[in-house]
């Protein structure tokens, strides 16, 4: 009598996962080998006397040891910096607003389940064309970094916060659009199908079935991009798009180290506030 079940053998295969793990180790060994033995790089040379001296000078400059009146204890400088912070905030809010409006206007035809008609139970020949055009725009918008947009737009407009906002919006609308289109694609089609069998038109399905289901996730993504926009606003400022970034660049060029400290303080406060607010909104949306 047989009372032992033969356990089926697991087939060992060279899977993608095991391949990539091996590849990571091979790359690590290879790269370090190249750096140490072929390039003959010397790490500790980076930490030589000269560089140490420069770093010391820069950081003591930031803390204002050599200056009699550092900018961060000066009332006028604070006023100026707060004005710039406010401009940066304006720029990011404008950018987020533009990006969100354009993304929301285009997101519905940009989702695959709308284009192929599975979500609205209706097919139209022009759906796929619209889908292609909008997805193409999204890809273009995401492919060009905000810094490049800003450099181009500053050429057209005069430097200021509006070109900065437009540059940030141009890059971010594609990201928001794509993320939100994917949210729509993941929507459960069953409630939608039932609305259709209750006689709802496509527009009614949109407002009764799709928007309530996707709104919380949309809000999360939009707020998240808002945080990112606020952080990136300093980068587009470097190329003349106004706000804290522009002043940062100028102060750095004039070696006004204590101003840089002040600007960094303002910037960090701004980011903190933004994180705090968006966290609050996200909790409320859940």
């Amino acid at each position: 009598m047989k009372n032992k079940v033969q356990i089926p053998r697991k087939k060992r295969r060279f899977s993608f996962v095991s391949f990539s793990i091996l590849l990571v180790f091979a790359l690590l060994a290879g790269s370090w080998g190249h750096i140490l033995f072929i390039e003959r790089a010397h790490f500790f040379e980076l930490f030589n006397e000269r560089n140490l001296e420069y770093a010391k000078k820069f950081f003591s400059g930031l803390f204002g040891f050599q200056e009699e009146k550092p900018a961060f204890v000066d009332k006028e400088s604070w006023k100026n910096a707060i004005q710039l912070t406010y401009e940066t905030l304006q720029m990011s809010v404008m950018a987020l607003g533009f990006a969100t409006i354009v993304a929301m206007l285009t997101v519905i035809p940009a989702s695959r389940t709308i284009a192929d008609g599975t979500l609205t139970v209706s097919k139209r020949w022009y759906h796929w064309i619209l889908f292609g055009i909008i997805r193409g725009l999204y890809i273009f918008s995401r492919a060009v970094p905000e810094l490049v947009f800003a450099m181009v737009i500053v050429f057209i407009f005069k430097p200021g916060i509006l070109p900065g906002a437009i540059a940030l919006a141009l890059h971010n609308f594609g990201i928001i659009g794509k993320l939100c289109a994917e949210v729509i694609e993941d929507t459960d089609a069953r409630p939608i199908r039932n609305l259709a069998s209750a006689g709802a038109s496509n527009a009614q399905i949109l407002f009764y079935g799709i928007i309530p289901a996707v709104m919380p996730k949309f809000l999360t993504y939009i707020l998240y991009r808002g945080e990112v926009i606020m952080r990136t606003s300093i980068v587009v400022g470097f190329v003349g798009a106004g706000g804290l970034g522009q002043q940062f660049k100028l102060s750095l060029s004039y070696f006004h180290y204590t101003e840089i400290t002040l600007l960094l303080i303002c910037y960090i406060i701004l980011v903190f506030i933004a994180d705090f607010i968006s966290e609050g909104f996200r909790k409320a949306a859940r």
Binding site: R190, P191, R193, N194, S197, P212, A213, M215, P216
Partner: peptide, 12 residues
């Protein structure tokens, strides 16, 4: 009119 398994209402 149609009624299916649950999950056919809009949850939100």
């Amino acid at each position: 009119g149609v009624i299916r398994q649950q999950f056919d209402l809009v949850p939100a």
